[in-house]
């Protein structure tokens, strides 16, 4: 009888951690890597804006009103002579900050609510789900506009408004994941050895549901960046003269035929960063849950 041998070179080592395997799958996805590269590029631009920006983003120059792109001003100038490249570079700060902070607000509120709702169940679950349904019934941007209108128009309030409006998706997702996880054997085992509920939720359930939440968070950053740009475009986000891609587009709409470059560059920046987050989110989803690849 032939002996069965295991070829260690063709199978993944047994001790490889799931996270490392997922990372390996992520690195192999070209789209996700391009997305990651673009995201890192925009983060670098946002951080280094004071160093790399060729001009002061709020300094006006009446001698350079609406000048087309040139060697001195690569992206042209706006209606009061400000350098568009400088404003796009500084605008990356507002957009990325809004994307990350508003998703952090959604995570900080939505995940605990989802955990409690899914784990406790019963009347509390029903109550929390009806409130979530009510929030989901209000269209995302319309709710964000209403919240920003009542809170007052500025970037901080826009981030709060976007964070609150995006929260129901995280509550729903976390609850659904908890409902699946809490009937697993490892949770039963943790309960059987007498772990308190809080420890079961935080040490046993939460680490096992992080992956889908992370994917949703990455995709939500893309949606939040568009939402911030939309609110700033409507005049409810970053207030002038501080640069923001949305408010730059708001100004540009009055000069479309005379200075189209004022609209092209900030819009292209939003498109690139949102596309990058979407690519990264899709890649993460495929890497963390290979069933999605079909």
């Amino acid at each position: 009888m032939a002996a069965i041998t295991l070829d260690r070179t063709t199978t993944e080592p047994a001790e490889t951690k799931p996270w490392r395997r997922a990372l390996g799958r992520l690195v192999k996805r070209r789209g996700a890597m391009v997305g990651l590269f673009v995201v890192l590029f925009f983060i670098a631009v946002a951080i280094l804006a004071p160093l790399i920006s060729p001009y002061d983003p709020v300094a006006t120059n009446w001698g350079l009103v609406r000048k087309p792109p040139s060697a001195a001003h690569w992206f042209g100038t706006d209606e009061i002579g400000r350098d568009v490249l400088a404003r796009v570079s500084w605008g990356a700060r507002a957009s990325l900050l809004a994307g990350v902070v508003s998703v952090c607000i959604s995570l900080a509120c939505g995940v605990p609510i989802g955990l409690v709702s899914g784990y406790v169940g019963g009347f509390l679950d029903g109550l929390l789900m009806r409130i979530t349904d009510a929030m989901l019934a209000c269209p995302f941007l319309i709710l964000a506009i209403a919240l920003a209108a009542f809170l007052g128009p500025n970037l901080t309030n826009a981030m709060i408004a976007i964070g609150i409006s995006a929260m129901p998706a995280f509550i729903r997702l976390t609850r659904a994941q908890v409902l699946n996880a809490k009937v697993e054997d490892y949770v039963e085992a943790a309960r059987a050895v007498g772990n308190p509920h809080l420890r079961i939720v935080l040490r046993h359930i939460l680490p096992n549901i992080v992956a889908p939440i992370m994917v949703q968070a990455t995709l939500a950053i893309a949606a939040a960046i568009i939402a911030e740009a939309s609110l700033s475009f409507l005049g409810l986000g970053q207030q002038p003269p501080a640069p923001s891609w949305g408010s730059m587009l708001n100004t540009a709409k009055n000069f479309l035929s005379q200075a189209p470059w004022m609209a092209v560059w900030p819009g292209l920046a939003i498109f690139c960063v949102v596309l990058a987050f979407n690519l990264l989110g899709d890649g993460l989803r495929d890497a963390l849950d290979p069933r999605h690849r079909a």
Binding site: A222, S230, L249, A252, L256, L275
Partner: peptide
Amino acid sequence: ALWGLSTPNFWLGFLMILLFSV
């Protein structure tokens, strides 16, 4: 699909106005 999901519709509106109207 990625293009559709990543394009802010107000920016797409501007691009279309630039092309088809201006």
